[in-house]
Structures are given as C-alpha cells and as structure tokens.
C-alpha cells in the first residue's frame, strides 16, 4: 500500500493552490467592478458597480466593443470552419497514404507554427494592402489559417492514424466509394478529436493578437486588440480593459464547457492506441 496524505492536509493543499492560481482572475474581476475613482487607490477600497461593463458594452467611450466582439466570433468561427474543411481531408490523406515528399509537406505545415508571426507580418501587411484584404473578414480568416490549420492537420492526423484502415476497407467491400467510406466511417469515429481540435483552434484564433493588430484597423478588429484600446487616451482605464477582457473570455469558456464531455474522451482517445 502506498502511504497517502491525510484527508485534511490534501484539502488544505488544494485550497492553497486554488487561491494561488485563481488570484489573478479574481483581481481582474474586482478591478472590473470598481468605479473609476478607486482604480489607483493604494489601500483596498471596493464599492462594486457595473459601470465599467455598461461603458464597455454601451460603446460610450467611442470604442465599438460589441462590434469587435462580433468580429472575433465571425473571424474565429470562420477560421476554424475553413481549417476543418481543408484540414480534415488533408489529415486523413496524410495518415493513410505515404507518397514522395509527404513527410516534407507535413513538416512544412508544422513549421508555420514555430515561425514567430512577427517575421512574416510586414510582408503580409504589404500584400494585404495591395490585394484589398486589409481589414476584412476574409483576410483575417485567411491569415488565421497559419495558426489553426497546422493544429487541425497534425492533431487529426494522429486520430486517423489510430483508426484501423480495415474499417474503411470493409466499407469499400460493402459497396461504398472511397469518399463515402471517409464520410460514413472514418469521420464519425474521430468526432471526439474534431471536438477537441475545434476548441483548441478556436481558442488560438480567438486569442491571436498580432495579426488583428497589424492587419485590421476598424472594420475587422477583434476583441484582443479592441480591449487594449481602453488603455489609450489621457489616462489608462484599467477597469474598462478588465471588463472587456472578462467579457471576451466568455465564448471560449462556454464552448469548453459544452464540449467538455467530448474533450476529455478526445484528448486521451487520440493519444492511446486501443
């Protein structure tokens, strides 16, 4: 028998860790509920108010935060959807068939993830200006493929590789075409993987900062950049930034909670060969 910690000690340790890890979040929440005059006080004074939220969501500072929020949703969902449409067949093909140069191709795709975004941002900016993609949804969805596509292809590839090819072979002999075998057999079996990778890709797309910072100005700007605009002007309005940041956490959080069931299964399913 292994010796285990006594129950109360384990509980105490957990509480300590809980407090430690949630402290920054709590600080943010408190900050967002403070009135403007208590922001810079050196002793702790706190009169909760929803003023900051009203200001941020009402757009009264001249910053259309609700629109940024909508932009983020459109751009992130669009980026994930495009990555799935393009990436799932790519992942499947790369898991099932080896051809000359296929490994190089996969590596090149992955290398998009190690290259710092800053190295490509200036040429992209010039290109986008010339192509008329600057500050458009299309442009953002496209550029975010650098972030989401490698993720989708690499993660989904391992899911497909773990599926026995004999399942699709059985479908071929049942009388289905290769395309039908993919849609009817392979795809339903990697649903947990699709859920996991969609969430991850969504979070990465949602949180991306550099691309919207340089490649959008007003029309297609997203929350990450938008939240910071409250810091501009004569004095930084930290409570507004905090409120905006907290509001912008909501969609990924909701998404994670709704697909949690798949996620737990999904994250282990792909890794462990049954």
């Amino acid at each position: 028998m292994r010796k285990r910690l006594p129950g109360w000690l384990a509980d105490a340790a957990l509480i300590l860790y809980f407090v430690f890890s949630l402290f920054p979040v709590a600080w943010m929440a408190i900050l967002s509920l403070k009135p403007a005059n208590q922001l810079f006080s050196t002793y702790f004074s706190f009169t909760p108010t929803l003023d900051a939220y009203r200001t941020v969501l009402g757009g009264s500072e001249g910053i259309p935060f609700v629109r940024f929020f909508g932009n983020s949703l459109v751009v992130s969902v669009g980026a994930v959807a495009l990555s799935l449409v393009v990436g799932l067949p790519a992942a499947y093909a790369s898991a099932r068939w080896r051809f000359k140069g296929s490994e190089h191709l996969m590596f090149t795709l992955l290398s998009f993830r190690f290259a710092p975004e800053l190295t490509v941002i200036i040429p992209l900016f010039v290109l986008y200006q010339k192509l008329g993609l600057f500050d458009t949804y299309t442009g953002m969805v496209w550029v975010l493929q650098l972030v989401t596509l490698p993720l989708v292809v690499w993660i989904m590839r391992s899911y497909f590789a773990d599926l026995s090819p004999e399942l699709e072979q059985a479908a071929l002999l049942d009388g289905y075409s290769r395309t039908q075998a993919f849609f009817k057999v392979a795809l339903p079996l990697v649903k947990p993987g699709i859920a996991a990778v969609s969430l991850l890709a969504f979070i990465f797309a949602w949180n991306n900062f550099v691309f919207p910072l340089i490649l959008t100005s007003h029309e297609a700007q997203t929350v990450t950049v938008g939240a910071l605009s409250f810091l501009g002007g004569d004095r930084p309005k930290y409570h507004l930034t905090a409120a905006a940041a907290l509001v912008s956490v909501v969609p990924p959080l909701l998404l994670a909670l709704t697909i949690q069931r798949y996620l737990v299964r999904g994250l282990s399913f792909g890794a462990v060969k049954s």
């Binding site: 399942l167 059985a170 071929l172 049942d174 289905y176 075409s177 290769r178 339903p188 079996l189």
Partner: peptide, 19 residues
Amino acid sequence: EPYDRGVAMCFESYALYPH
C-alpha cells in the same frame, strides 16, 4: 476498384463499425 470486384471479405480484426 474493390467495390466493383463483387467480393465480400471478413477481416480477422472483424472491422466492425464501432459507432
């Protein structure tokens, strides 16, 4: 193509659709 050969096959791994 396999689906045009008119053969039916039983796999040792069963290859049943688990879902």
